[in-house]
Amino acid sequence: MTSPSYASLKWRAIARRHPSAFLLAAQLLSLIAYPLFEPAGGGRVVFGAFGVLVLALAVWVVNRSPAIKWIAWLLAAPAFALSILSVLLASDVLLVASSALEALLYFYAAGSLIAYMMSDHRVTADELFAAGATFTLLAWGFAYAFLVCQAWYPGSFVGVERPGEPRTWIELLFLSFTNLSAVGLGDVIPLGSGARVLVMLEQFAGVGYIAAVVSRLIGLTILRRERG
């Protein structure tokens, strides 16, 4: 067997065993890449390209979980098309439409991963990757929901810098991460009723995720070590 063939088979085996790791890696890589392209104005294009990749990976992960597959494809197909068109045509309307579908897909994928992690009493390495991927999916989903809310209700979010302008994607994503993790950091504040409701829902989701899912994984891991 040649070396390239062996390497290919090895990566395929890893992908089958740890699909959630690829989803988590793609989202974290997009965060790292964004600052490199933002000064040249290409941040939106980069996020659009990574968004397409994340959409594909999210559907792939859902297909390996107990979720209904056709729902994921029903959300992913138009979201994929609108995401590409929004980048090519620089259309804000298409961007909002794709963001709404992507938010739904990310929430659905997050729910599917939670069902996957709660389906047995044995903690695997992929379930630990799934825990991280679920957190990022929730953060991305609410960030896209914030983007839609801002488009529907201008002035929903205000920031320390440029207070009269709409918040950028990275600002809304930063708000989503800080809100979901409850660290209390951030220079973006929700003002409208819709924005505040979304923020409260994300706070509830963050606390519930830590209490119900993460604590369960930690407890099962400790129990397995004690029995071992």
Rank of each mutant, 00 (worst) to 15 (best):
A195S: 12
S156V: 11
L175R: 01
A15H: 04
V59R: 01
L137T: 13
G132K: 01
S156I: 10
L138M: 13
F157S: 05
L75F: 12
L24C: 10
V199Y: 11
L191A: 08
G111C: 04
R16E: 14
P163D: 06
A81E: 00
I210Q: 07
A67M: 12
L113T: 08
T221V: 09
W140P: 02
L23E: 02
F22E: 02
F107A: 09
L95S: 14
A131W: 03
F107H: 06
L220H: 13
G111S: 14
T221F: 10
I170C: 07
A79T: 04
P78T: 07
P166W: 08
P78Q: 05
T134P: 02
L172S: 01
N63W: 10
P163Y: 05
Y106M: 15
V87W: 06
F204W: 15
A131G: 07
F146G: 12
A58I: 07
I14L: 13
A79K: 00
L128I: 15
G132I: 01
L173R: 07
Q150D: 02
A130Y: 11
K69T: 13
A125N: 08
S98P: 02
P19V: 11
M118L: 15
H121I: 09
W60K: 09
L82S: 01
A131K: 10
A79C: 13
Q150M: 00
D120Q: 08
G194V: 10
V61E: 03
F135L: 15
R216S: 14
A58C: 10
A72Y: 02
P78N: 08
S20Y: 04
L53D: 04
A90M: 09
A151C: 00
L55W: 08
L88I: 11
A103D: 03
R162S: 14
W60E: 13
A143N: 06
A100V: 04
V207P: 01
G164N: 00
T124W: 01
A13I: 06
L24N: 09
F142I: 05
G159I: 08
H18L: 14
R16L: 12
V199C: 12
A79L: 00
V197Q: 06
Y6V: 15
T221N: 09
L137G: 12
S181M: 07
S181A: 14
G164A: 04
G192A: 15
S98V: 02
L24E: 10
T134G: 00
F22K: 07
A133P: 04
A133N: 05
A205C: 13
